[in-house]
Computed example of a mutant assay.
Amino acid sequence: MSFQDIQNTFMAHIRQSASQPAPKGIEERRMAIYRDLFFNNIEGFITSGFPVLRTLYSNDDWNILVRRFFVEHDCVSPYFLDIAGEFVNYLSHGYVKTATDPVFMIELAHYEWVELDVSICQQDDNEILINTALAVTPLYFSQTARNLSYQFAVQQISVDHQPVTPSSQPNYFVVYRDFDDEVHFLTTNPMTALLLSLIEASPAISFDQLCHQVIQHAPQFSYEQVSIGAEQTLQAMANKGVIVTKNQA
């Protein structure tokens, strides 16, 4: 058996010890240590990354959920920091819910993961703060910000507050990293979410182009109404570094 075959056998047993035999010649006591070490590391990373979600499960149900991730999901990234993102990807695409899972689990998990995502994402060195009039500034959505919407009011979820049906209207958020590298969550509204999504979809868009695109989505407003509201909103977002421009040199 080649070394690679031994590695594959070792990992198959670590993930599914009940059905996959251990490599020959390794003491069971040592294999038990490895099994616990691998799983406990994964469980620890997921628990620390999703503290609110964790509180909604009993110890047994939480371990079953993490064990399913451990067994069923093939992580694309080898980095520990990416485990939380892999967990969200698993819940979103590979996981079949059980009776113990809250209906909002995927949205809550994503909401909790975004904090880590924003805290470690790479900043675009060409991005600069806007210090000129918005009307003459190419607008960009910062690489260290996220424009989000959820069916559930995820920011309110706790052990004592677990909604069983979605909100009557979507819940909008901006998550961004400030100038001191602190992550903040900001509740927004449909118009702000629309403005930010249009900027994100059309990098370097001008303020005038943006206002005309908004009117296409909300024809009940005049250009003057849109421009006044957009200027106030975007200036506030620019002050926080959510909307930026880029160094053209």
Rank of each mutant, 00 (worst) to 15 (best):
S167W: 09
F221S: 01
I130P: 03
E200F: 12
V174S: 01
A201I: 07
N171T: 11
A218E: 10
C211T: 00
P170W: 06
F179S: 01
Y140R: 01
F179G: 00
N131V: 14
T165H: 11
N189V: 10
N131I: 14
N131K: 14
L148H: 03
F173H: 02
S149G: 06
L210I: 02
T137P: 10
A201P: 10
V164N: 02
V136W: 14
S167A: 11
T188M: 13
V174Q: 01
L195W: 07
C211R: 03
G229P: 08
Q225L: 15
T132C: 10
Y172C: 04
Q151T: 02
T144A: 10
F173Y: 13
P219S: 04
Q209I: 08
S158L: 15
A153M: 15
A193H: 10
A133F: 03
D125S: 08
V226W: 09
Y172N: 02
Q216N: 05
P203C: 10
E127Q: 13
A201M: 15
L198C: 04
D125K: 11
S206P: 07
L129F: 12
L210A: 00
S206I: 05
N171S: 11
Y176M: 07
S167E: 09
P219A: 08
Q143I: 06
F141L: 07
V226S: 04
H217I: 05
V136Q: 11
L148F: 08
S197V: 08
A193R: 08
I199W: 14
Q151N: 04
S227P: 01
F141K: 01
V136H: 11
D208E: 13
F173V: 01
F152Y: 15
Y172A: 02
R177C: 07
H184T: 01
A230I: 03
Q156A: 15
S222T: 09
Q143K: 12
Y223W: 13
